[in-house]
Simulated scan of single mutants.
Amino acid sequence: MMPQKSAERTVVVPLLFIATVLAGMLSPMQSAVNGQVGKELGDGNLSAVVSFASGLVVMTIIILSQGSTRKGFASIPHKITAHRIPWWNWVAGCCGAMVVFSEGATASVLGVATFQTTLISGMVISGLACDRLGIGVDSKQPFSIPRVLGAILAIVATVLVVLPNWQMPKVIALAVLPFLAGLLAGWQPAGNSAVARETGSMLVSITWNFLVGFCILASVLLVRFAMGQVTPGLPSDWWMYLGGPLGLLSIALMALLVRGLGLLLLGLASTAGQLIGSVLIDWLVPALGNQVYFVTILGAFVALVGAGIAMMPSAQKPL
């Protein structure tokens, strides 16, 4: 029986890895969609509200269809006041809001590959810091040479992908936005996981995440509208409303695939999918992305290597 199980795993794991790479490509697709919405509406804030609203509608329908999730969601106000988990777990949705806002504000200008690489680089560094501080993990991961090297490679990757625009300070400034979003996004999974444990449902946690992000973005938009800084509008094409659902589909697939791959392989495969997908979008659909340079591809590869190294468990000799 053991050889048979080993043979089955030899076949199944590569297939799951490929499936995760394909699922990871949903993230750059979401960035491309939200980037085009931001370009058409001329406002990243408005684009982010549209994306979060579409995702929130889908999640609301899902949780209302089940009695257990309705009950779990209704219990959130009481659980917040009970203070059983730190308050910041309940506002982790602001991280997703920052990511989606940066998509609408910068993805169409930077190109999907540059956007995804800078975002992932920020997440690698944030993940390293969160592991060191014990945020969202069972035990703290001390700094080690491989993990610090991974963070350094993430910074190198960011520099490489922005090199073609080095003479354009405005574009370089825009690249800072997804990098900062990546730094924030590092602790979002920890917050969502804590809310899921508290409410007894990941579906409730995801819906709450979308609600928090939507409220933050909508509040800022309303203030800006009152000040005359933004003109209301909606996307003209149906596919421009797919940003939120694409993000939800990616989350759902990752939750299913992690059972067969484990966190390390899942992280590597999904990161590879994000970077490969972003380069392909920029290359094959220039209307949704941007020009692909050799250093863009090199930067994406360096980011993948850096992410892979940073995901390794810390060695016995911490720094």
Rank of each mutant, 00 (worst) to 15 (best):
A113G: 14
T106W: 00
V112K: 01
A97S: 14
M98Q: 03
T114H: 00
V91Q: 05
L110H: 05
M98A: 15
G104S: 13
C94V: 15
W90T: 01
R84H: 03
G96R: 05
M98F: 14
W90S: 05
V91S: 14
A82T: 01
W90I: 04
E103Y: 08
T114P: 12
S108T: 05
A107G: 09
H83P: 07
T106V: 09
W87A: 13
R84Y: 00
C95F: 06
G111N: 07
R84P: 02
I80T: 04
A92W: 11
G104C: 12
V100E: 02
N89Y: 11
A82M: 01
T81C: 09
M98L: 15
C94M: 15
V100M: 06
M98W: 12
A107C: 10
V112F: 02
W88F: 14
S102I: 06
R84G: 08
T106K: 01
W90L: 09
W88M: 10
V112Y: 00
T106S: 08
A92Q: 13
W88H: 03
C95H: 09
V100Q: 06
V99Q: 13
F101M: 10
A105C: 10
M98P: 00
E103W: 04
I80V: 14
A82E: 09
F101P: 11
W88E: 03
A97N: 11
T106G: 10
G93T: 08
I85W: 00
W87H: 08
T114V: 15
A82P: 02
N89M: 05
V109Y: 04
C94G: 13
P86F: 00
G96A: 05
A82S: 12
E103I: 12
G93N: 11
R84E: 03
G96D: 11
G96K: 09
S102Y: 05
I80C: 07
V91Y: 10
V100G: 05
G96Y: 01
T114N: 10
F101N: 07
G104H: 13
L110C: 11
A97M: 09
L110F: 07
E103P: 12
